[in-house]
Design a protein around this nucleic acid. Structure first.
Lengths: 113, 113
DNA sequence: TTATAATATAAGCATTTACTTATATAGAGG
DNA sequence: CCTCTATATAAGTAAATGCTTATATTATAA
């Protein structure tokens, strides 16, 4: 049984503000399924690299995602240890899974490793 | 057993954007506990009447709240029939309940009926 | 060392946002 | 009808936001 921690309205509204933007919500959906590097997200979302990087910075600052460098690539994944992780997870599970789109990317050889 | 409807990323991010603002999230928390008129929300949140009305309009446009006129007063409550109601409910339940603050208002005779 | 590739950051800009103040609207009651 | 009260709306504004283009950083590889 997990402890039901109450969070402040400030903290939660900040998380929701980050998720309340279509691009960032899609990023979260994507890195929930598997870790992805920036250029993969650029392909997947069809947006410019700086735009993606700037969204990732906000998500990283809020500790909603974790980064890990592998050579030239920096991989991002959902941070399961976030205080509001189960809210985030619940929200992502409202949406259709990104798995199919990620398999598409793989088929087109657009994944980096 | 309720049917698990998937929602679009657009729809959900719009809902989260509305909840991702502290004042609006607090309004939702409040009208989740009991229906409240505008002037009660003005007291409770200690904000100007137009500011509250403008937030309510956004919540109403998104059908997150329902309004009901009673004489001069217009009461607002959470709309339980919203497509994403169970997400909204789950989010609100992350937060400490507003019941105590509402009882405070009552004690100070600041409720309208 | 130099060149290359992936990513981050900076600066600029158009749009959106959340408030303010002022005014309009709508119903209740004389 | 007129007045009062609650609420809504309009207009204006400062700050925040999400992009763009240009440049900096960091690691790999030659």
């Amino acid at each position: 049984m997990t402890i039901q921690m109450k969070v402040t309205t400030d903290e939660l509204s900040n998380v929701l503000k980050l998720l309340g933007e279509k691009t960032r919500l899609t990023i979260m959906q994507s890195v929930y399924v598997r870790e992805l590097c920036v250029c993969e997200l650029v392909e997947l979302l069809d947006m410019s690299q700086p735009a993606i990087s700037q969204h990732l910075r906000k998500l990283r600052d809020a500790k909603l995602v974790q980064e890990k460098r592998k050579g030239n690539w920096i991989y991002y994944k959902v941070n399961h240890d976030h205080l509001s992780y189960h809210v985030v997870e619940m929200i992502i599970n409202e949406l259709p899974s990104m798995e199919n789109k990620l398999k598409e990317l793989e088929k087109q050889n657009l994944l980096c490793e």
